[in-house]
């Protein structure tokens, strides 16, 4: 059963305000991370080290946001004793910020390729990376949209995009392995590239997690560690 979330219908106006601020802050944080990824892609494409440097610096801001949002969650739990959907929202927010912050960290790892001048020497690998990165940006955008609208259908749709990313990721790994065989002068560089590719895939996984949280928020059912297809069938009834 789907429960529609109504954040602004509490008797206490202050509580309404607090919950709204909380969801907005998560979206702000999400937007920030999205911008980070886009900046990173641009930096890779243009080999722009200063932009990448900025991305690394900006990550501190995201870290601080995580702390603030967590504090606010704790404050709300302590002061408001949220229950049911309010409680799920706050748990979701708390978990989501952790995941978003991790996404931020993964982005940093990718951005470091540019700052440490370790971009893959092969155009095929670079192109593949950028392609996956574009897909990940698209998925991330969809995730935050779904969160903002608390729309479980688009969450499921986004969730399913991860399969494509995983596929591309496997292909890219194969290609990278081939390239590595051809050019094994700088193995250290290749390792960093492999890490970055893995980070991209991880971002997709984290977005998947976020989608699971959205489902948890709207359905009140924890869908982690269960086969998504069954869950979706059950839920869409």
């Amino acid at each position: 059963m789907k429960r529609h979330l109504e954040l602004n219908t509490h008797i206490s106006g202050k509580f309404n305000q607090e919950l709204e601020n909380l969801t907005n802050s998560v979206l702000t944080m999400g937007g920030e991370v999205e911008q980070q990824l886009i900046n990173t892609i641009t930096a890779i494409r243009e080999n722009n080290a200063s932009l990448a440097e900025r991305v690394l610096l900006n990550d501190l801001k995201i870290n601080s946001m995580e702390v603030q949002i967590d504090d606010e969650c704790m404050r709300i739990i302590a002061k408001r004793n949220p229950t049911a959907s309010d409680l799920r929202l706050i748990m979701t927010v708390s978990r989501a910020t952790t995941d978003i912050e991790r996404i931020g960290d993964e982005i940093c790892r990718i951005a470091k390729l540019v700052t440490k001048d370790k971009l893959p020497p092969s155009d095929i690998v670079l192109g593949g990376m950028l392609m996956i990165a574009e897909k990940v940006v698209f998925m991330m955008r969809g995730t935050f949209d779904a969160f903002a609208r608390q729309d479980e259908k688009s969450a499921v749709a986004v969730y399913e995009q991860d399969d494509a990313i995983d596929k591309k990721h496997k292909e890219l790994l194969k290609q990278t392995a081939n390239e590595m065989q051809n050019d094994h002068t700088d193995m250290q560089k290749w390792f960093d590239v492999l890490w970055a590719i893995r980070s991209l895939e991880r971002i997709g996984d984290r977005c998947k997690n976020l989608c699971e949280y959205i489902l948890f928020l709207t359905y009140g059912k924890d869908v982690r560690h269960s086969s998504m297809k069954k869950v979706v069938k059950k839920l869409m009834k």
């Binding site: 802050s25 801001k61 603030q68």
Partner: peptide, 8 residues
């Protein structure tokens, strides 16, 4: 530093 929540 950015402040997400206003408290006075």
């Amino acid at each position: 530093m950015l402040k997400l929540f206003e408290t006075e």
